[in-house]
Design a protein around this nucleic acid. Structure first.
Length: 595
RNA sequence: GGGGGCGUAGCUCAGUUGGUUAGAGUGACGGCCUGUCACGCCGUAGGUCGCGGGUUCGAGCCCCGUCGCUCCCGCCA
């Protein structure tokens, strides 16, 4: 007989009755009846009830065992009598009569119980991650993650993509997020950077003629965390294709994502196989962000012109962008509901507040209703598609973008509050036509608004002839830049790339990088483009976010095996940590305490 | 860097208007129990109420500061 097990804890059924078997696992639960001792033994595969009576020779040893001890139990499989069968367990028709107990490992009193599904504090869960991972929810999520990655690989390969690895130690690049730096021992004062994404490498792979690349790629960005943004590191399904238009990329990615979600949907509706296209501009207006949750039926309307009317005397909204967020049926909500929404906008969103109007059968009610005479109210109702019993909130700001963003948050808040969001569906869309540049008000200059390597949607000759005086034209330029969004989560960002060295130098010049500087910073890629570069493009869906959505979780930590906390610390491994003076000397590094 | 929430037993939480010795469940330990599967019953131990200061006759509760966790804003090509 094997030293540890003949079967797993999830394996035994009626047909095994009579066999002598050996199981190993953790004590999930112990029930002591004095005259009868039950031990539920758990491993990766399941749980099996084991039982021993006081006159059995194994009783004394079994009686010692406590939660989470690791035991090897040997005994005969017996059928449970009618009435003692547990129909909730796959192994519930049988149990093991314990004849021999071998203690492999003991456990101290647990800081985090494995049994049960209570919530525990995040820092405890992170410090004792190995215990949390034993619990059903995380164990299931992490296993799901593996299956999702496995199916993605299979789908990519079957579509003719080839997986390659790219360097982890590379060069820092300007633009984009803050880099993680690694000091060089051999080159004093110089640093490697961990890749924010294998962006340049995958483009070089296209220049190298490999045609269709993908990788489950680790990416590193030193930016502050969010629930859907892990601190430090995350994984992308990085992919790139040669000789493709934007539509070719869409056609390649849609079946992979839609198919993967469908495979694990478990009854949830994944929407159409071809994702609808929404322009960036439309998305900002109608949904108040560039990652709309299309499960939410609310649509924002621009109503600045209503408040600009001569017969409307509400000064606070004059000369401002005003966006209206409908709240269908909210007329039935108590006054406190409206106050709560308004208070939320003030405290959490830093807004001046949200005006609102409730539509009765005989006109509008609410703090600002009196400023709208009947014709203005009718115009508002028509624009927002309101009916009696509905309410409408207003987000107003002198800055259009601020008004739009507040409206977006409000749309989300109201959609959730009113229970309008169906959590049994996935709604995908492409956000297209992102602006190439944006105005940086703080530093009074033009910045790339997204990926600096994207191809502008503008004729080559005209683009090369742009100069500083064409600011309006430049800020109006769109790029072949697109995102995939699912249920309000940005899953993917991609572009048709700029493979023309002259256009690329010009693109950087517009964003304030001298030609010489661009030549140095992107020497490898620019140089490559001068030796025959195919038109190419791609995208990079976030693996962690895909798994999070499929698992129905709201936080990436629930689908990450060993996550860091919001302050980018690993509480289990104690990272980051101090290093020895010798290590620092070797790296030519001296630390300076913050002020 | 800024804002919101939380912090009481190993763990999950309650704790009224500021008022006697800070409670419950769970876990741990001991005892009883032959069919449980969140077993049940009895008992014992377990507390710097995150930390520091203040107000008060009196602070878990009020005020100020600080630390930790978390969510959000900034940031994230």
């Amino acid at each position: 007989m094997h030293a540890y097990r003949t079967h797993t804890c999830g394996e035994l059924r009626k047909e095994h009755v009579g066999r002598t078997v050996r199981l190993s696992g953790w004590v999930n639960r112990r029930r002591d009846h004095g005259g009868l001792l039950f031990i539920d033994l758990r491993d990766h595969y399941g749980i099996t009830q084991c039982v021993v009576e006081p006159d059995g020779k194994a009783f004394a040893a079994a009686d010692q065992a406590r939660s989470e001890w690791v035991l090897t139990l040997t005994g005969r499989v017996v059928a449970r009598t009618a009435g003692t069968v547990n129909e909730d367990m796959p192994t519930g028709e049988v149990e093991i009569r314990i004849e021999d107990v071998s203690v492999q490992s003991q456990a101290q009193e647990l800081p985090l119980p494995v049994f049960g599904d209570l919530d525990y504090p995040e820092d405890t869960r992170l410090k004792y991650r190995f215990l949390d991972l034993r619990r059903e929810r995380l164990h299931r999520n992490i296993t799901l993650r593996s299956r999702v990655i496995s199916t993605i690989r299979r789908r990519m390969i079957s579509q003719g993509f080839t997986e390659f690895q790219t360097p982890i130690l590379t060069a820092s690049s300007p633009e984009g997020a803050r880099d993680f730096l690694v000091p060089s021992r051999l080159h004093p004062g110089k640093f490697y950077a961990l890749p924010q994404a294998p962006q340049q490498f995958k483009q070089l792979i296209m220049v190298a003629g490999f045609d269709r690349y993908f990788q489950i790629a680790p990416c590193f960005r030193d930016e502050d965390a969010r629930a859907d943004r892990s601190p430090g590191e995350f994984y992308q399904l990085d992919l790139e294709m040669s000789f493709v238009t934007q539509d070719d990329v869409f056609a390649a990615v849609e079946p992979v994502l839609h198919g993967t979600f469908g495979e694990f949907a478990d009854g949830r509706d994944c929407g159409p196989a071809n994702f609808p296209h929404i322009t960036y501009q439309d998305s900002m207006l109608r949904y108040g962000n560039d990652k709309p949750d299309l499960r939410n039926p609310l649509v924002i309307a621009d109503v600045g012109d209503v408040f600009a009317r001569d017969d409307v005397a509400f000064k606070a909204f004059k000369d401002k962008t005003v966006r209206a967020i409908p709240a269908p049926g909210a007329g039935a909500q108590p006054r406190s509901w409206f106050d709560k929404i308004d208070g939320w906008a003030k405290s959490e969103m830093g807004a001046a507040g949200l005006g609102y109007i409730v539509l009765g059968d005989d006109g509008g009610k609410g703090p600002i209703a009196k400023f709208l005479p009947q014709p203005a109210l009718e115009a508002l109702v028509a624009k927002c598609g309101l009916k009696p019993g509905d309410a409408v909130f207003f987000s107003a700001d002198a800055k259009t973008e601020r008004a739009a963003i507040l409206a977006g948050h409000t749309r989300t808040r109201i959609g959730r509050d009113l229970g309008l969001i169906n959590d049994k569906e996935f709604r995908f869309c492409w956000i297209v036509d992102f602006p190439m540049y944006e105005w940086n008000e703080d530093e009074k200059r033009i910045d790339f608004s997204h990926n600096p390597f994207s191809m502008p949607q503008y004729a080559r000759e005209k683009f090369l002839n742009l100069d500083k005086g064409d600011k309006d034209t430049i800020l109006g330029l769109k790029a072949y830049q697109y995102d995939i969004v699912c249920n309000g989560i940005e899953l993917s960002s991609g572009a048709i790339r700029n493979h023309d060295p002259e256009v690329m130098l010009k693109a950087f010049e517009i964003a304030g990088y001298a030609r010489e500087e661009t030549e140095v910073k992107f020497a490898g890629m620019l140089n490559a483009f001068r030796y025959g570069a195919p038109p190419h493009g791609g995208t990079a869906p976030g693996i962690d976010r895909i798994v999070m959505l499929i698992a129905g979780e709201e936080n990436l930590r629930e689908v990450t095996m060993f996550p860091m906390n919001q302050q980018a610390q690993d509480l289990m491994m104690n990272a980051p940590s101090e290093v020895s003076a010798k290590q620092l000397r070797e790296l030519h590094i001296r630390t300076v305490a913050p002020e």
